[in-house]
Amino acid sequence: MKNLALLAALPFVVGCGAPPPVSLGKLSGTTWHFTAIDGTAPVGKETSLRFDKGRIGANVGCNGMGADMKIVGGQIIAGPVISTQMFCEGVMDQERAVGALLAAKPKITVRGTMMTLRGGGHSAELHLEG
Rank of each mutant, 00 (worst) to 15 (best):
Q85W: 10
T116Q: 09
G99M: 05
G120W: 06
T109G: 06
G112A: 07
P80Q: 03
R96P: 08
A78R: 10
I108S: 07
A103Y: 00
V110I: 05
V110G: 01
E95Y: 06
A100T: 04
G99A: 06
P80W: 00
A104W: 12
M115I: 04
R111W: 10
G112D: 02
M92T: 11
M92F: 12
M92Q: 12
R96V: 04
M92G: 09
G119C: 06
E89G: 11
V91L: 15
R118V: 14
A78S: 05
A78Y: 01
G120H: 07
G121E: 05
T84H: 14
V91W: 13
Q94T: 07
A103M: 02
V110M: 00
V81N: 00
A103I: 00
A104C: 07
G120M: 03
G99D: 05
D93S: 09
R111D: 08
M86A: 15
H122S: 02
L101G: 08
G99S: 07
P80L: 01
E95K: 09
H122I: 01
K105C: 01
A100S: 09
M114R: 14
G90M: 09
T116K: 12
D93F: 08
E95S: 11
P80H: 02
A103R: 04
A103Q: 00
I82E: 03
V81W: 00
M114L: 15
A104G: 08
T113M: 13
A78C: 02
K107C: 09
Q94Y: 07
F87D: 12
A100D: 09
M114F: 12
P106K: 03
L101S: 08
H122Y: 04
T116A: 07
L117I: 04
A104M: 04
M115K: 04
G120C: 02
Q94F: 07
T116V: 15
R111G: 10
P106T: 04
F87L: 11
A100N: 11
T109M: 02
G121W: 04
Q94R: 14
A97S: 11
G112Y: 01
D93A: 14
R111F: 13
R111C: 09
I82H: 07
L117P: 05
L101D: 03
E95I: 06
V110N: 01
G90Q: 09
G119K: 07
V110E: 00
A104E: 04
H122F: 05
E95H: 12
L102R: 05
R111M: 14
Q85K: 11
V91S: 15
M86S: 15
G99K: 10
T113W: 15
P106I: 02
P80T: 00
I82C: 05
G120T: 08
V81I: 05
T113N: 15
D93P: 14
V81E: 00
M86L: 13
R118G: 15
T113R: 13
I82A: 11
I82W: 03
I82L: 06
G121S: 07
T116L: 08
A104D: 06
Q94D: 13
M115N: 03
R96K: 13
A100Y: 08
V81A: 01
A97H: 14
V98G: 09
T109P: 08
M86G: 14
M86N: 11
L102C: 04
T84R: 11
M115C: 02
H122V: 01
